[in-house]
Design a protein around this nucleic acid. Structure first.
Lengths: 111, 111
DNA sequence: TTGCTATTTCAATACAAATTGAAATACATA
DNA sequence: TATGTATTTCAATTTGTATTGAAATAGCAA
């Protein structure tokens, strides 16, 4: 494999390709991280997270604000829940959703 | 629509559902944000970003480290490039990729 | 009990993203 | 010019995700 001369030198200084690989984060950590990003990769789900950062809400209010069908909303709420970004607490007929600590971190980190 | 009594009061204090909607980020901003998260939602792409945070690299070295086929790698590099997370600069036969400022922000923000 | 609302679940479909392998491009060098 | 390497592009296929509508569940209230 031929590579640019300067790059070759840079890699030598680091200690070779093996040293670069060693510096990488743990594989499982990257997989978990990518799953969280995947949960965040939908405009509707970001809207839900932002809503819940303003005020914990029951699904029916979220549904009204976001104008989604019940089953569609339920699907997206489940994606967020499974990834530990929100949690629901049941009270009578309603389930009130709120951000988890993890969810708060991501909503507040507006990059 | 019936909702939990406490929630009803909370929403009143905020100024009603309309006020909650007003507090939401701009729709286009959320769409853009979701696209970036989508670009970050793959373990391979996160690995590439982390690699480039250690050292800008040409595609062939990334290919060797990540053990991907040329066309597969090219596809993922294009996703990252299109979302302005990395950029490539051509020199002779090689294209050396490095993180953009935006890319650096996301790699350094290890939530 | 009956009916009503909130919510989820499920199966079918529709849509989008990722992978593959072959071919194209582009530059370097013998 | 001919060959080889780096990289991208393209079309076909596979895989994964989202949407839909109907049905199920669960609690409340008449």
């Amino acid at each position: 494999m031929k590579i640019p001369e300067q790059l070759y030198k840079d890699i030598e200084v680091i200690g070779g390709i093996d040293k670069i690989i060693e510096k990488l984060p743990d594989e499982n950590r990257m997989i978990r991280q990518s799953q969280i990003y995947d949960a965040l990769s939908s405009p509707l789900r970001l809207k839900i997270l932002n809503l819940l950062s303003i005020q914990p809400l029951c699904a029916c209010v979220i549904q009204k604000i976001t104008k989604t069908s019940p089953s569609k909303l339920s699907y997206h709420l489940s994606v967020l829940t499974e990834n530990n970004l929100i949690e629901g607490s049941k009270e009578a007929t309603w389930i009130t959703y709120s951000l988890t600590e993890l969810g708060k971190q991501y909503v507040l980190t507006k990059l």
